[in-house]
Design a protein around this nucleic acid. Sequence first.
DNA 1: CCAATCAATAACCATCGAGTTATCAATCAA
DNA 2: TTGATTGATAACTCGATGGTTATTGATTGG
Lengths: 107, 107
Amino acid sequence: MPQTHNVLFRALADPTRRALFERLCRDGDQTVAALTAQAKVSQPAVSKHLGVLKQAGLVRHRHEGRQTHYSAQPGALAPLIDWTSQMAGFWESRFDDLEDLLKRMDQ
Amino acid sequence: MPQTHNVLFRALADPTRRALFERLCRDGDQTVAALTAQAKVSQPAVSKHLGVLKQAGLVRHRHEGRQTHYSAQPGALAPLIDWTSQMAGFWESRFDDLEDLLKRMDQ
DNA sequence: CCAATCAATAACCATCGAGTTATCAATCAA
DNA sequence: TTGATTGATAACTCGATGGTTATTGATTGG
């Protein structure tokens, strides 16, 4: 599971990659050519980025004739959401502990 | 704001750094020495990582004599939460659009 | 069948980033 | 005051990563 976090965070750490994912979330299914047209990098670069996103489970692809369509899998963001709420949870629980402590000291 | 995302994602992309932040969330205030004791890297490495986390707003520090205490600022995770829910939101809204379209076609 | 298009791969290059050791400034204890 | 400790900085190394161009394999249109 920490491995999952690693792959996810690293995949999203690159701005070009995040832009690709955002576009797929926003506009849905896209061919590599369409994605390349908007991206500020070459087609091979786009393909490589899509490969990284695929490894992280953030996108899926299907072949249609000679073109490949990619689509976002936002469900793959779940571990990221879990992690952030866990961090916030730790924080709050420590805060609660402090409150408990103060309450007890008050008695 | 995209710059904020960049700094945040990049700060959290490194496992050592994430481990430091997790520990600060879990256990609260820690000195650099205490953090170094648990980390699997040298003290200068820990200091550098803390510097990156600080740039991202994820930690704060205060001096106490000759030691420095670091603490987590989980509030800095807000843009990350916003981003993920926005991505999920795009997804659902596209799904709704599709439903609308299908409903209209049905008439 | 041939030319053209699409996307993935190969090969390469430059930069960045995480790690190290050495050192310095500041603080404290003796 | 001196010696030890704490943490930040400097200087460096090295591997990972993101970018490029060239090429190849598939597929389609004429």
